[in-house]
Design a protein around this nucleic acid. Sequence first.
DNA 1: GTCTATATTACGATAGAC
DNA 2: GTCTATCGTAATATAGAC
Lengths: 207, 207
Amino acid sequence: MARRSGSSGEKTAVALHEAAVRLFARHGFAAVSMRQIAAEVGVQVGARYLYTADKQTLLNDILGGHMEQLLATADETLPRTGAAADRLAAFVQFHIRYHVLRPEKVFISYMELRNLTEDNFAAIEVLRRRYEDLLEDILKAGKAGRDFHITDTRLTTLAMIAMLTGISTWYKSGGRMTQEEIEAHYLEMVNNMVGRPLAAELLASPS
Amino acid sequence: MARRSGSSGEKTAVALHEAAVRLFARHGFAAVSMRQIAAEVGVQVGARYLYTADKQTLLNDILGGHMEQLLATADETLPRTGAAADRLAAFVQFHIRYHVLRPEKVFISYMELRNLTEDNFAAIEVLRRRYEDLLEDILKAGKAGRDFHITDTRLTTLAMIAMLTGISTWYKSGGRMTQEEIEAHYLEMVNNMVGRPLAAELLASPS
DNA sequence: GTCTATATTACGATAGAC
DNA sequence: GTCTATCGTAATATAGAC
């Protein structure tokens, strides 16, 4: 993705990357041509190949870049110590906010995995697993400390991530609920899932 | 694959449908050509058009057929009366079993929505919403009867369906857990989500 | 850094032979 | 019921001009 020098090419590089993300999200990788991406930013197809060797590399750059950035941001945002319940709440909030802000990249990163070559796919899967492990480590800590009542941390991890990521399939800002309300509600459901139905009990029997 | 001498059109029709499902699931609608589908069952591309008017109709037939069959099977399988908790358990079991048996159609029905024309998409969305409402009606009944402690039935519906459908992204028969174990575990999580952490409490403090 | 032009290949869809 | 042949279009990727 490096393409240096003080050229106007830097602007074009960014524009081409963003156009590709937008078009892939809307129509799918296979349905979008290099011509369309070029046209979207106002250059000809020949210029498109100055920035990425081929279409496969373009997809891999988008997916790999997304996962790398997700992991880097998670690393610098999430606390590594403290009560498991607090760490879980932090993860839920982080995951929702990060994904709701980048619906297109999230969508592509899930939908276009099968259009990666075998090697590229394997590398992305390693990153994906690393992200899942951030959550599973929290669940394991909570289970070990008897804060969480979980039968299988791996299955719960997958269930939670599927549930949380699903938000970005329907979320629109300005919808029926604010992002804060959605976060609060999903946190409540996540707490319930780990056997800490605090909010539910309070709501069910107010004193 | 094999080419039959006096083969009937009915066999070819079924084979072409199944080949399309398999190829679309593996490579995506836009990435698969009518030629490939025909070749997969051993006929030429000209014959492919004897069975479906065009590629868009083929996709719509697959997605529409899947949703219609899902709704029909749900209608004849799920109880419409009884305790909300029992109806919820029945829904969870039905959903998991139906989806785990048809991973390819489930995958396509979610991934290829954007490749439908506007009209076809709208029709599929109606069916999808109708299925979601089967679950939401159960949640509403449980909430009204104070069996479930739910803040927002619509949000909980979407969260549960995302969580349950996610199973088909990783499930392989012969994996670490049996299908029965997976069902039991997901039912436990679903019960927790609606504020009925029965299993978790029993496990946490056995007498 | 971007353009135009082009080589090569493949697509969806149809027509007419058998 | 299926085949072969074909039309018109568009794809990826490259070469060379400016």
